[in-house]
């Protein structure tokens, strides 16, 4: 079976990570920020999986499973915070929450 070269996988992971980062930095809607964060997490997971496939080692896949769990936990907490925020401020725009500026 022709395996995918590791460079392709890593480049895809890099592109996904950059896309996610741009999303986090530029989005004002907090739901989209959270989604971009998920994209970044999955990009790093992809990099782990590709590396483990290249060296035939299980550690990378274990790591991916852990990232999945972490992302699930994070989303649970994050969504809870978002609901609280929406109740309190009636908006999901994070720039409204700039009250703690120096």
């Amino acid at each position: 079976m022709q395996s995918i070269p590791i460079e392709h996988g890593l480049i895809l992971a890099g592109i996904l990570f950059a896309l996610g980062l741009v999303g986090v930095l530029t989005r004002r809607n907090i739901v989209f920020v959270l989604m971009s964060l998920e994209v970044m997490l999955n990009a790093s997971g992809l990099a782990f999986v590709v590396a483990s496939a290249r060296w035939g080692h299980a550690d990378g896949q274990v790591m991916f499973l852990m990232i999945l769990t972490l992302a699930a936990a994070e989303v649970a907490v994050g969504l809870g915070l978002i609901i609280q925020m929406y109740r309190k401020f009636k908006t999901v725009d994070i720039d409204v929450l700039s009250e703690m500026k120096g």
Binding site: V24, L25, T26, R27, R28, V33, I94, D95, L97, S98, E99, M100, K101, G102
Partner: peptide, 10 residues
Amino acid sequence: LARTQTGYLG
């Protein structure tokens, strides 16, 4: 330095 603390998450 206080000026950098804008409160904007981005």
